[in-house]
Simulated scan of single mutants.
Amino acid sequence: MRLIFVYNANSGKGNAYLDGLHKIISPSTYACSLCELTYGVFLEKKEWKLFRKQEHVEMDFYHRDQFLKKFKSKWLPKYTFPIILSEKEGELEVFLSSEKLNTMETVEVLIETVKKGLASH
């Protein structure tokens, strides 16, 4: 099994810069809770980076535009972003929905939720 993390943001340095500014100027209107949980203004949070390195599951990370391009299919469900999907034997399944991610307030809560989800798979 692998986890696929999809941020509700587009790729590219310009977009990353604008996203960082958005987090500073108007954090309450920033549209990617997964970005907020795993990154500070510009750098990955230490707790998240450590978790990623220590966890024994494959993790892939995509920005919205990258995911839609790579997994383009007329049969692909219409996902809302951000989202975490699990992939097993070529099948994608929602691991953590955008609704659930949007309720999380800290990276520690995200880490614990991912750990519990992995334990139940």
Score class of each variant (00 low, 15 high):
F95P: 01
F95V: 07
K46P: 03
V114T: 05
A119P: 01
G20W: 03
N102L: 01
E87S: 09
L76F: 07
S98M: 02
W48G: 10
Y79I: 06
K88T: 14
E108V: 09
V107Q: 03
G40N: 14
L118R: 04
R52C: 15
E55R: 08
E93G: 02
I84R: 02
T113A: 11
P27L: 13
G20N: 04
R2C: 03
K78L: 12
K69G: 06
F71P: 00
I25D: 05
C35Y: 05
K49F: 13
R2M: 11
Y79H: 06
A9T: 07
L92R: 07
T29R: 10
E105F: 01
L34S: 05
E108C: 04
S97H: 02
S11W: 02
M104N: 02
R64T: 11
K115W: 03
G117R: 03
M1I: 08
M104K: 01
L37C: 08
G14H: 01
L118S: 06
E58C: 07
K49E: 15
F95M: 06
V94H: 02
Y39P: 00
E58R: 07
F51T: 09
Y62R: 06
S33K: 14
A31W: 05
F67S: 05
L50M: 11
G14D: 08
L110E: 08
L76D: 07
S97W: 01
K78G: 05
L68A: 04
R52P: 01
T113R: 06
K116I: 09
E108T: 10
W48Y: 15
M104Q: 07
L76C: 08
G117W: 01
C32F: 10
L85E: 06
L76G: 06
S97D: 03
K45L: 13
K72Y: 10
A9N: 02
N8F: 02
L34W: 03
